[in-house]
């Protein structure tokens, strides 16, 4: 199966594009793909236009775009980092490998059965405190709109592996995002 394009790729804009650039790209893509302008290939046009509309819905709104950017940034961690030197002894090493296996199972399930994947991540983490397992739990919570739980999970990952710059940046970025969401909520609350 072909890799799914991300929303920036669908609209053919750079991730740093301004909102005006996104709007212009959206209009151009619509004229290019819309079924009304492609009566000879309706199925293709339908699929392409649906993608363009999805991409525009997210990228046209500053807050949605920030959340989306965060979700691209905080993607699943594929597998535990290679350990540079072998300090594992006996039982620990076995546990570590078992946890890594469960983690992989969770990642494989993630696209089709998120809830099942979460159970795998939790199981992996309980088997051996892999930072990747708890980080992936954070990814799950982000995708299911539970930002506070996501924050706790990402902080846990930092605690286990304090030197990992990616984890640290994830926590910072999520912190910013939570502040933005709060601000948006307040504005909605005052009716502005």
């Amino acid at each position: 199966m072909a890799k799914k394009l991300n929303y920036y790729e669908i609209l053919e804009v750079f991730p740093a594009a301004t909102q005006d650039e996104i709007e212009n790209a959206f209009k151009n893509m619509l004229f290019k793909y819309h079924p009304d302008h492609n009566p000879d290939k309706p199925d293709w046009a339908h699929e392409k236009t649906a993608e363009v509309l999805d991409a525009h819905k997210i990228l046209s709104n500053q807050l949605r775009r920030t959340i989306y950017n965060f979700m691209i940034f905080a993607a699943l961690r594929e597998k535990p980092a290679e350990v540079a030197f072998n300090f594992f002894q006996g039982a620990d090493k076995k546990k570590y490998e078992e946890a890594a296996g469960i983690l992989q199972e969770g990642i494989a399930l993630y696209d089709s059965q998120k809830q099942q994947a979460l159970i795998k991540f939790q199981h992996a983490f309980a088997t051996y405190p892999l930072p990747e397992a708890v980080y992936n739990m954070g990814v799950f919570y982000t995708a299911t709109n539970k930002v506070q739980e996501a924050m706790r999970a990402f902080r846990e990952a930092v605690k286990i592996e304090p030197g990992n710059q990616h984890y640290i940046r994830t926590v910072d970025k999520l912190g910013e995002l939570i502040r933005e969401i709060e601000k948006a909520k307040q504005m909605a609350g005052t009716g502005e």
Partner: peptide, 12 residues
């Protein structure tokens, strides 16, 4: 929601 639109759901 704007149309045309497509949403897919995984089943098992």
């Amino acid at each position: 929601s704007s149309i045309p639109t497509r949403k897919s759901e995984p089943y098992t």
